[in-house]
C-alpha cells in the first residue's frame, strides 16, 4: 500500500534473528527464552511504563507479557511480524486494557465518592516523553508534523482513544483520526525506507 511494496512486502522483510530462538523456546528451551527475554523485555517495559506510568504495574504487566511469549511460543507466526513487535503489541494492549479498566472503575466510583483518591492520568504528551527515552522517540517521530506527533504520542505512549484525545485537545474526533492515521502512515513509510526508526540498536 505504500507505493511499490504491496503484498510482497512481508516476504522482503528482513529475517528476524529472534524467530529462530522462538522455535527453540517453543520446544521448551529456557536458554533460548532467556535470549528472547533480554531482547524484548526492555521494549515491553518501556511501552507499559509509558502507558501505565506506574513502575510496579509496568513490571507486573511486563512479566505477564513475557510469560505469555513463553506460553504461546509454538503459535508465534513470523509472517505476522517480528518477535519484538509481537511482544510489544501484546504489552501495549494489556497496558491499555488495564488503564481503561482502572479509569472505568474510577468513573463509576466517582459518581459515588466524588474524586476521592483519583489517580491523575491527564497530563499526557510531554510527560510521556520523559518517562520514555525522550530523544529516541522524538528521533523516530521526526518525519511527522507537530500535530501528528502529538496525536501519535497521546495514542500510543499515552494509551488514549481517539475520542479521549479529541476531548483533551478540544478538536473534533475526525480530525484526531486523520492526524493519527497520517502520522502512523508516515512512521510506517519511514521505517520501510530505513529512516529514523529503523536504526534500532541490537
Amino acid at each position: 500500500m505504500s507505493g511499490g511494496g504491496g503484498t510482497g512486502a512481508d516476504r522482503e522483510r528482513a529475517v528476524d534473528p529472534l524467530a529462530a530462538s522462538m522455535a527453540r523456546v517453543a520446544a521448551g528451551d529456557r536458554d533460548a527464552f532467556g535470549e528472547v527475554y533480554d531482547a524484548v523485555a526492555p521494549k515491553v517495559l518501556a511501552v507499559t511504563r509509558a502507558v501505565l506510568r506506574n513502575p510496579s504495574m509496568a513490571e507486573e504487566v511486563t512479566q505477564e507479557v513475557l510469560l505469555e511469549v513463553w506460553r504461546q511460543a509454538a503459535r508465534y507466526d513470523p509472517s505476522a511480524g517480528s518477535v519484538g513487535a509481537w511482544a510489544t503489541t501484546i504489552g501495549h494492549r494489556r497496558a491499555v486494557d488495564r488503564v481503561r479498566s482502572v479509569r472505568a472503575r474510577e468513573d463509576r466510583e466517582d459518581r459515588v465518592v466524588a474524586g476521592e483518591g483519583r489517580v491523575e492520568y491527564d497530563e499526557v504528551s510531554e510527560q510521556v516523553l520523559q518517562h520514555e527515552d525522550e530523544s529516541r522517540v522524538r528521533k523516530a517521530l521526526t518525519g511527522l508534523t507537530e500535530l501528528q506527533r502529538e496525536a501519535v504520542v497521546m495514542a500510543y505512549w499515552g494509551g488514549r482513544t481517539s475520542t479521549e484525545i479529541s476531548a483533551q485537545l478540544g478538536v473534533p474526533v475526525p480530525t484526531v483520526k486523520t492526524r493519527l492515521r497520517d502520522g502512523l502512515q508516515r512512521l510506517r513509510v519511514d521505517l520501510a525506507r530505513g529512516e529514523p526508526a529503523a536504526g534500532s540498536a541490537s
Binding site: 512481508d10 521494549k43 510489544t88 521505517l191 526508526a197 534500532s200
Partner: peptide, 23 residues
C-alpha cells in the same frame, strides 16, 4: 493485515530498546 503488521513494526521500532530504566 499487511498494513497492521507494518505499523506495529514501526511503532515497536520507535520504542526505546534501552529505556531510561532497564528491566
Amino acid at each position: 493485515r499487511e498494513e497492521l503488521v507494518e505499523v506495529r513494526e514501526a511503532l515497536a521500532a520507535a520504542v526505546a530498546d534501552e529505556p531510561a530504566e532497564a528491566p
